[in-house]
Design a protein around this nucleic acid. Sequence first.
DNA 1: CGCGGAGTTGATGATCTTCAAACATGGTGG
DNA 2: CCACCATGTTTGAAGATCATCAACTCCGCG
Lengths: 221, 221
Amino acid sequence: MLINANAAARQPIDGHLAALAGVRVACSEFKYRRGIEIFGEGEDAEYVYQITSGAVRTYKMLPDGRRQINAFHLQGDMFGFENGVTHRFSADALVETHVRIIKRGSILDAIQSRVGSTKNLICYVTQNLRHAEDHMLLLGRKTALERVAAFLLEMDERLSHPPMMVLPMNRRDIADYLGLTLETVSRALSVLRDESLLRFDGSTQRRLELLDRQVLAKFDA
Amino acid sequence: MLINANAAARQPIDGHLAALAGVRVACSEFKYRRGIEIFGEGEDAEYVYQITSGAVRTYKMLPDGRRQINAFHLQGDMFGFENGVTHRFSADALVETHVRIIKRGSILDAIQSRVGSTKNLICYVTQNLRHAEDHMLLLGRKTALERVAAFLLEMDERLSHPPMMVLPMNRRDIADYLGLTLETVSRALSVLRDESLLRFDGSTQRRLELLDRQVLAKFDA
DNA sequence: CGCGGAGTTGATGATCTTCAAACATGGTGG
DNA sequence: CCACCATGTTTGAAGATCATCAACTCCGCG
């Protein structure tokens, strides 16, 4: 499935992993099918990942099965940065996804020997941090409707405001991202549809069009 | 937490800002009184901060006044890392606080010229990220009781399991950290007290002793 | 054609918030 | 030194939001 028509149009992807690490480091390419786990929480963190096409969810689980999705990663995004030797969260492909991978060791080693890339790499990490900070505000303090509106605007922004948005994740994934239940997400979307802020396209509920981003932004706090 | 769990026990503080940036860069020391703002959301990000003593809250606000505290920073912690030129959140001193500050530019410049510190600095940033990820799970998926238990265990850990814990923040701060109201925090603490998992010391409600960390850990999911 | 996954919608209920009141605390000045 | 007042905390009662449980629809697909 095509995630992002506009992003696909951009070639090459910004901040190529190999370029960041230094050209001498070889990047492997890899393909994951829809629903397949890329790595699991607690596994050894051997690689850093960059998406060339597709979409990925990263999440944590509680022992009783409650899940919190930290982030959805789309084309060009990097994930899997770790401090220690193991992953602190899991990552699955939402749709068929192609990634570049590079050994964790090599990227740090390469940085040591090629200082020019430091600033860039730190930027990638702090961008993850920025997103986490915004998401904490959402999770801690926003209402269900505000969260869903914020989610739609975030996706719209990241997909470069496409006329028609195709979501790569289902309602449960959205719910686990927003700290809600899938029913609450569905209800909120219905409210926004009834308010004429969005429109579903055709039979599927994954294709939708934002009809009034301005008003939608007011629904987000 | 973010940066350095056992900082209070160690002298001198691990990862001295000046050492990270290179000895040639001068660090200024600064003092903030209780309740004073260190920087505000949207202000120019001129400095990176490291606490030598005291405690700081960093937070974001919604237009209608709802607040989400991202993190409490204690001795040895660093905060104020930014990608762009402005701060994405505000920071206040919770109690009288002494910090080292260093110009943002100098730290990045220094890193450029002194590669050995790169790995360390990235560690500081990714530790912030790790904390944010854990906190998202808490905010998105834990109950009130689980959140408060997690908060107590986090503080206990960061203060190196003191026999008596003195909290530098009030109930509202805790609530804004945990995505709850101050009343709910108070009620949860009362429940834990009634269950004999903690005990308040003397008259003040800021001094408390954890009576059973094991059982408390079970209250946290 | 029927099955299963995904989504919507409704009814009910639990958790947490809101509103309110009372009490404790700690600093300040008479 | 103590009274006083702002700040902080606890507790109770009522209410709102969101979760849970359940039924039903829609669609894709073997």
